[in-house]
């Protein structure tokens, strides 16, 4: 049997990251978007890998609008200021770093966390990885998915 983080734990971690940095006026609402909430053209994704006592990959995919809003919030920039891709990549990368590090602490250790890898577009996973946990949510109507993959 694969050891995997519980969905409720993933939810709790994402919720804490969200409410700490993105304010709690706008709650993160769990959603159940079985087919995936968004298209590849309109998405950003980031991933960190965990290696050691447990091996797996934590991925965050989110809509472009959400990626831009959360970057502005984290950098305290207003709507009028232009954002470049590097800034969005940085913010989305830090998000997956926080979620990934906390997921690592739930799994058998010791393990090391890689630096985040960020891309414009949906995440692709190699065929030897299997999705073991997933949390879908919406924030201000915009979709976000956190998934955990581990070797099958």
């Amino acid at each position: 049997m694969t050891i995997a983080p519980e969905m409720t734990d993933v939810h709790a971690i994402v919720e804490q990251v969200w409410s700490s940095f993105l304010g709690d006026e706008e709650p993160l609402l769990p959603a159940y978007d079985a087919d995936g909430p968004f298209g590849a053209d309109d998405a950003w994704s980031s991933a960190v890998s965990i290696h050691g006592g447990w091996t797996g990959t934590v991925t965050i995919e989110l809509s472009k609008n959400l990626a831009f809003s959360l970057t502005r919030l984290m950098m305290a920039m207003d709507e009028s200021e232009a954002l470049d891709d590097a800034e969005v990549a940085d913010a989305v990368g830090e998000l997956v770093n926080m979620v990934g590090g906390n997921i690592k602490s739930l799994m058998p250790g010791p393990s090391a966390l890689t630096l985040p890898v960020v891309a414009a577009g949906r995440a692709a996973h190699s065929s030897d990885l299997r999705e073991v946990s997933r949390f879908d949510a919406r924030w201000a109507g915009e979709p976000v998915r956190v998934s955990v993959h581990s070797p099958s």
């Binding site: 970057t71 984290m74 950098m75 305290a76 940085d90 913010a91 990368g93 770093n97």
Partner: peptide, 8 residues
């Protein structure tokens, strides 16, 4: 290493 985190 994150600019966003340094900004916060």
């Amino acid at each position: 290493d994150s600019r966003a985190m340094r900004s916060i």
